[in-house]
Design a protein around this nucleic acid. Sequence first.
DNA 1: CTTATTATTTAGACGAGGCTAAATAATAAA
DNA 2: TTTATTATTTAGCCTCGTCTAAATAATAAG
Lengths: 230, 230
Amino acid sequence: MSNTELSRAEQDYLKAIHHLLRKEGGDLVGTVVLAKWLGVSAASVTSMVKKLADGGLVTYSPYQGVALTAAGERAALEMLRHHRLLETFLNQQLGMEWHEVHAEADRLEHAISEELEARIDAALGYPKTDPHGAPIPTKDGQLHAPATTTLWAAQPGTVVQIAEVEDEDPALLTHLAELALTPGALVDIVQKGPFGGPLFVRVAGQEHALGELVAQAILVVPETHFAASG
Amino acid sequence: MSNTELSRAEQDYLKAIHHLLRKEGGDLVGTVVLAKWLGVSAASVTSMVKKLADGGLVTYSPYQGVALTAAGERAALEMLRHHRLLETFLNQQLGMEWHEVHAEADRLEHAISEELEARIDAALGYPKTDPHGAPIPTKDGQLHAPATTTLWAAQPGTVVQIAEVEDEDPALLTHLAELALTPGALVDIVQKGPFGGPLFVRVAGQEHALGELVAQAILVVPETHFAASG
DNA sequence: CTTATTATTTAGACGAGGCTAAATAATAAA
DNA sequence: TTTATTATTTAGCCTCGTCTAAATAATAAG
């Protein structure tokens, strides 16, 4: 209802809630999880979450957790749209490296106007995904993500295609790029060692053994033919 | 000495001090002038200025005014460089209007990394001036501005060339663009009415009568032949 | 079912950056 | 030179977003 501008901190909280709800799958996210993700104390989270609840941006059940209202989701998706458009722009138009764009976009996403957002979108030809394969929310708040699993969960003996990789850790991204584990790549799932042992995959003609952390950071879809979808 | 990151507010104060020292010509700028420019109370200025003085960024003489130290000047010029590179980029690469870029750059200038600054600079071909004709400080903090006067002070009967126009007021910029009073334009100074009466000029074949406020917002140099300088 | 452990909230404080109102210094006018 | 005016500073308060320490709720272990 109240139409005050959201502060940077409020925007960051909404973005974090959205991210964690999606990642962890549940329908509520807890104070400590949020605090860890944001690099902030749990007490700080409690008070901010109350403020956001007062503003109608989240629903808050004490001791249970927090979720986004429609208004909160809208705001979070707008930030996410800014973020992913910026990542794409920085990468494609300004030649910034894959692993650099996340941090830069994190700062810029709060500062760009709707006008600039639109011009960036147009300059890029209205892209559907960012450099890490993540879908870019539409202007009207639709986020259409394909149904994915993690590479870690993929069936040995099958072939999958990389849809998206986590973009938060620059070092991980550099590593993935060296291994050619980038969106669009086709990956043979060779075999999985027992007891959490490494996952053996073949990509771009090379075989690699991947640890769980790496394989969990990669989202894949079953192999498909390259259809000119649309 | 202390190498803490400057806050947004600190950066804005340094930028304002730099701007006002240049504009007003004096060697000290007063609390109230600064307060008006920043849209803040004089009391707020006093306390911030003290903090900046503690940090070695300004010299502060109570009841006299404030000036920049070398470190403060460096920081101010870095912001100015960001600002003007961004204005140029938004205008040239993204097609934003002349009058829109100032406000957008004011928000973005605090958020861009040195890396991004360098890439924007390169993408533009290392420009020397922004869309309003203002010189862009170099990476090492040189600001080489030509010696200008205001259009208001120009001698009737002479021809001058517009070097730069004030960029803060979008409405003024729109007006100037309609009158073809843009950087590079050659202007015949026809005559100046008495007692602060309007200034009659001819530009692009049209004659216009300009009020003092407008004519003061335009910086000019004596007519020169277009030399392929460099 | 009782006890540890962990998650969460409450209470109280702090620094940043702003504000108003009152006091004081500097300057202009008489 | 005295008085009025304006510029500046001081004092005290406020909100935002954070923190730590202590209290309480929820959950897991025995």
